[in-house]
């Protein structure tokens, strides 16, 4: 039995990611058990961990600290495959500009920046913020989680702040919206996405199916 723990700290749509994982497990004819839980014991015994997140970073970080989610994630990062999604990925960074500036977990050497209120494309046309919808993702590294996903596939994004990584070699996917933005990060047994694989239909489900069998090696 492949046990996946989705860390529940009260922020966001955990139902969707759990349902999507169950769905791809069925498709792959794999026995998958998905638990949505804040319990460190459950997370410790899981084979794989998903660290999701939706909403404002200040509230997310407050709940992460209150429930000590940071140590659960840190523990998981030492021993098993971890998938961080959206604000989950942002929370791994050092700092976010959102809500007047919020310190994050600092597990990855990156910053979370605001798109700005006057974002423009190359032709000077104004771009709406949030960056909401389906954008192309360029796969900047080979990674087991990209297997079967065509390069430049579109994934679903919804965010107003984006990650800037200080170490470019950790970037696994990039996208463009007024600025170059980090769409995915890969560092040893952790893979993190700014987009929502659970909402990205075929491309997203393929990535999740790859996660179910990923051994945590780059």
């Amino acid at each position: 039995m492949n046990k996946i723990a989705v860390i529940d700290y009260g922020m966001g749509n955990l139902h969707s990611v759990a349902k999507a994982l169950e769905h791809v497990g069925r498709q792959a004819d794999q026995a998958v058990e998905v638990v949505v839980t804040p319990d460190p014991g459950e997370i410790a015994v899981a084979d794989r961990v998903v660290f999701p997140g939706v909403g404002a970073i200040r509230d997310c970080m407050a709940e992460i600290r209150r429930l000590d989610v940071g140590s659960m994630v840190e523990q998981a990062m030492q021993e098993k495959p971890v998938l961080a999604i959206c604000v989950g990925m942002q929370a791994l960074m050092r700092h976010s500009e959102e809500n007047g500036g919020v310190d994050c977990l600092g597990f990855m050497d990156g910053e979370v920046r605001f798109f700005g209120s006057d974002l423009r494309d190359e032709d000077g046309r104004r771009l709406k913020v949030p960056h909401m919808g389906w954008n192309e993702v360029i796969q900047t590294t080979d990674h087991p989680l990209w297997q079967g996903v065509a390069d430049r596939s579109r994934f679903y994004f919804v965010h107003s702040y984006y990650v800037h990584m200080h170490r470019a070699e950790l970037i696994a996917g990039s996208s463009h919206y007024g600025a170059q933005l980090v769409a995915a990060v890969a560092d040893k047994n952790i893979f993190a996405t700014q987009f929502h694989p659970e909402k990205s239909q075929t491309a997203g489900l393929t990535l999740l199916r790859n996660f179910l069998s990923w051994d945590g090696q780059g």
Partner: peptide
Amino acid sequence: VRAIAGQVFIP
């Protein structure tokens, strides 16, 4: 909503 979200993986 729960039934849709359990089967449809778009927003």
